[in-house]
Amino acid sequence: MNYALLPAICCYLIGSAAYAGFLFRQKNGYNQLAYALITAGFVIHTLLLAEAVLRAGTIPVRNLHETLWFAAWTLAFVFLVLWWKSRLKILGIFAAPLITLVAAAAFFVPDTAADIETSLTGFWLIVHVVVIFIGEACLALACAAGVLYLIQERNIKFKKHRFFFRRLPSLELLDNTGYQFVIIGFTALTVGLVTGFVYAHSVWGRFWSWDPKEVWSGITWLIYAALLHERLVAGWRGRKAAIFAIIGFAAMLFTFLGVNLLLEGHHNEFTRW
């Protein structure tokens, strides 16, 4: 366990607590405090990551520990940027604990020495990894918006006007925000897949090799593609869109972790521990 990670994780943890305080007390001070704490955690996180990059000479995603640590960083990055753009305060209630959870998971997973057969350098590979991670973080937040939408929709449908009804924003805002997150995430996912093909072609001489990770990435991509297509053509909005954003995220999680842990393939080494 690398104790140098703790300051960043602590910032995230206290930030999450401050968001919980915001949820209950509805004071803007809590919200600002939480945002400041997440930002502070992110700055520390960035410094640690920069140091790791210098030490490794490439992006540090060579084992599960490094992958999770990097995933938490992209989540924090995307959250800070999207929060700033969308001003959807309530999103932090979901995002901050998620960042904390992933960062804490990285802390507890042992950092075993990595022996990667294929080289982890090269422009295409770095773009592939970074863009895919950013896309996945966006889609995680889209899932959060979807969950909040479903909660609020249920409140309105079943005439429950208690806790969450008052605290959550309008359906329209949640729906739009989720939609925008999906667009950004889907775009990043597409770019990430394409760069992955290019890299695969340069290393193995073929774009697609029916590797389980590739197959599941394809499935995830298709789910989001269907969601966007149906939204544009048939007006899939609201409840259906929210459910699909959640299903898509579940598929993505499986692609990210499940495939590596349960199935075999050439992405395996990155999550070995």
Binding site: I156, F165, S170, L171
Partner: peptide, 9 residues
């Protein structure tokens, strides 16, 4: 108020 919770603006 309810309309606002549904439509926002």
């Amino acid at each position: 108020e309810l309309a606002r919770k549904i439509f926002g603006r």
